[in-house]
C-alpha cells in the first residue's frame, strides 16, 4: 500500500489496541468482554497486515509466537477456574477479597471496575487468547496465500 496508508495505519493501531483493551477490562461493567475486545485487537493486526503486507510483518510477528501467547491466555483462563476448586471448579473465589472483590449494590448503580471477582481476570485471559489466535490465523493465511512456507 502507499506511504499514506501505512503511516495512518501505524498511528491508528494505537487507538485500536487501546479501545480493545478498554472493552476487555470493562467487560464486567459495560457491554463487551474478552471475546469482543480480543477480536478488536486482532482487527488491528489485520489492518497492519493489509497496510504493510505480510512480508514486512513477518520480520517481527510470527504465528508461532502468537500461538505461545494464545496458549498462555487459555492456561490463565483454566487456571483461574482451577483456583476455585477449594469449593467447586469455576467458583468465583475472589468475590469479597482484595482483588476485584467489590460487590455492587443490587439494582441500578454507577458501576465500578473493582468488582466482579474472577470475571475481569478471565476476560483478560480470553482476550489474550482470542487476540493471539485470530491474528495468528489471519497472518498464517496471508503468508500461505503469498506462497510462503510456514515454520513448523
Amino acid at each position: 500500500m502507499s506511504k499514506i496508508v501505512r503511516t495512518v495505519a501505524n498511528q491508528l493501531i494505537l487507538f485500536v489496541v487501546i479501545f480493545g483493551l478498554y472493552v476487555i477490562i470493562q467487560g464486567h461493567v459495560t457491554p463487551g468482554g474478552g471475546f469482543q475486545g480480543g477480536a478488536i485487537i486482532a482487527s488491528g493486526a489485520v489492518l497492519l497486515i493489509v497496510a504493510s503486507g505480510s512480508q514486512e510483518i513477518k520480520t517481527w510477528l510470527r504465528e508461532r509466537r502468537l500461538s505461545v501467547v494464545e496458549s498462555s491466555g487459555a492456561l490463565l483462563f483454566i487456571l483461574l477456574a482451577f483456583a476455585g476448586i477449594g469449593t467447586v471448579f469455576f467458583f468465583n473465589f475472589l468475590v469479597g477479597s482484595r482483588l476485584f472483590g467489590g460487590i455492587p449494590s443490587v439494582g441500578p448503580n454507577p458501576g465500578d471496575v473493582w468488582t466482579g471477582g474472577v470475571i475481569p481476570l478471565m476476560n483478560l485471559g480470553v482476550g489474550l487468547k482470542v487476540m493471539a489466535g485470530l491474528s495468528a490465523v489471519v497472518l498464517a493465511l496471508a503468508l500461505f496465500s503469498g506462497g510462503e512456507e510456514l515454520e513448523e
Binding site: S67, S71, L75, I78, F82, F89
Partner: peptide, 23 residues
Amino acid sequence: AHSSILIIAVTLATAFLTPLVGI
C-alpha cells in the same frame, strides 16, 4: 468428589500446556 471435572479439566489444561512445553 471432584473427579468428574478434573478428568475434563486436566486433559484440557495439558492440551493448553503442550505447545508451550513442546517448544
